[in-house]
C-alpha cells in the first residue's frame, strides 16, 4: 500500500499467558478514517499503547510515513507527527484551555529551552493554538481552566491539542466515551470536518459514529483482527455480528 501513512505489520504482545495482540497488521491511508472496533478486552488499549509508545511490542513493526517507530519514545513519536487523544482525558486541570494547547504548539516549534521571553503574549504560540481551538469549536473557552470544562469539551480540547501538533496521523482513543448522544453527534461532526485533512485511526465504541465516519473498519477480537472492510461489509459479516454487534 503505497499511500499508507501508518503501517502495523505482524504486531504481537503477550502479558504472561494472555496474547493481548496477536499478529495484527493494518494500515492507515492518507485522507481516510480507519475505525478499530472490538468488544471490551479485545486488546484495543494495548494496541494503542504500542502505537503511541507506552508499550513495547514483543515482535512486529510500526512504521510512520515509512519510518520504523516501534523503538522510539512517546515524545519522539509525537515529534514525528503522531497526535493522540486519551480514553481518559489527560490535560493539565488548573491551566487554561489555551495553555494546554499552547504547549503542543511550543513542542512543534522546536526546543523548549528558552528561558527569557514570556509565553503569555507570544503570538507565535497563541495564534496556532487559537486556530486549533477554532477547528474544535472551542475558541470561546480559551481562557477557562480545564477543571471547569464539561466532559465533552475536554474531549474537544484533547483533539485540539493533537491538531496543534500538525500531525501526520491522529490516533483517537474512544473520543466519544462518556458523551451523551448530543455531545457524541457534535464531536462526530467536528471529526468529519477533519477527515480529509489528517488521516485518523479511530478507536471507538459508538457504532453510530463509527459507521458515519469510517471509510474502513477493522474488528479486533481477542487480540486479533477478524475482519476488515467498509461499513456495509462489516455490518454484513456474520463473524462480526456474532462477536460484537450482539446477534
Amino acid at each position: 500500500m503505497s499511500d499508507a501513512v501508518l503501517t502495523l505489520a505482524h504486531l504481537n504482545k503477550r502479558f504472561g499467558a494472555l496474547q493481548a495482540t496477536s499478529d495484527v497488521s493494518l494500515d492507515l491511508r492518507e485522507g481516510e478514517i480507519h475505525a478499530l472496533i472490538g468488544p471490551n478486552g479485545a486488546g484495543k488499549s494495548t494496541l494503542i499503547g504500542q502505537i503511541a509508545g507506552g508499550l513495547k511490542p514483543d515482535s512486529g513493526s510500526i512504521a510512520l510515513a515509512g519510518r520504523e517507530i516501534s523503538t522510539l519514545s512517546v515524545a519522539q513519536r509525537a515529534r514525528l507527527g503522531l497526535g493522540r487523544s486519551f480514553q481518559v482525558s489527560s490535560l493539565a486541570e488548573p491551566l487554561s484551555v489555551k495553555r494546554n494547547v499552547m504547549i503542543a504548539v511550543q513542542a512543534l516549534q522546536g526546543h523548549s529551552f528558552r528561558f527569557w521571553k514570556p509565553v503569555q503574549r507570544d503570538e507565535s504560540l497563541l495564534a496556532p493554538a487559537m486556530q486549533a481551538l477554532e477547528r474544535m469549536a472551542l475558541a470561546h473557552r480559551a481562557d477557562t481552566p480545564v477543571s471547569e470544562l464539561s466532559h465533552g469539551e475536554r474531549r474537544q480540547v484533547e483533539v485540539a491539542c493533537a491538531l496543534a501538533l500538525k500531525p501526520r496521523v491522529l490516533l483517537l482513543d474512544e473520543p466519544m466515551a462518556g458523551l451523551g448522544p448530543e455531545g457524541s453527534a457534535r464531536l462526530t461532526e467536528l471529526l468529519e470536518a477533519l477527515k480529509h485533512e489528517v488521516p485518523i485511526l479511530l478507536i471507538e465504541h459508538d457504532m453510530n459514529a463509527v459507521f458515519r465516519l469510517a471509510d474502513r473498519i477493522s474488528v479486533l477480537v481477542a487480540g486479533a483482527v477478524i475482519a476488515h472492510g467498509d461499513g456495509a461489509e462489516i455490518r454484513g459479516n456474520p463473524q462480526v455480528r456474532e462477536a460484537y454487534l450482539g446477534d
Partner: peptide, 29 residues
C-alpha cells in the same frame, strides 16, 4: 519569575501537572 513565564517554564509546569501530556506533545519531560 522570568523563567516560569518563559517557554521553559511552560514546559516545566506541564511536567509537574501532567507529564503524559507533555510527552504526548513531543517534549521529553
Amino acid at each position: 519569575s522570568r523563567i516560569m513565564k518563559s517557554r521553559f517554564g511552560a514546559a516545566l509546569t506541564m511536567a509537574r501537572l501532567n507529564d503524559t501530556r507533555l510527552a504526548t506533545a513531543g517534549i521529553a519531560p
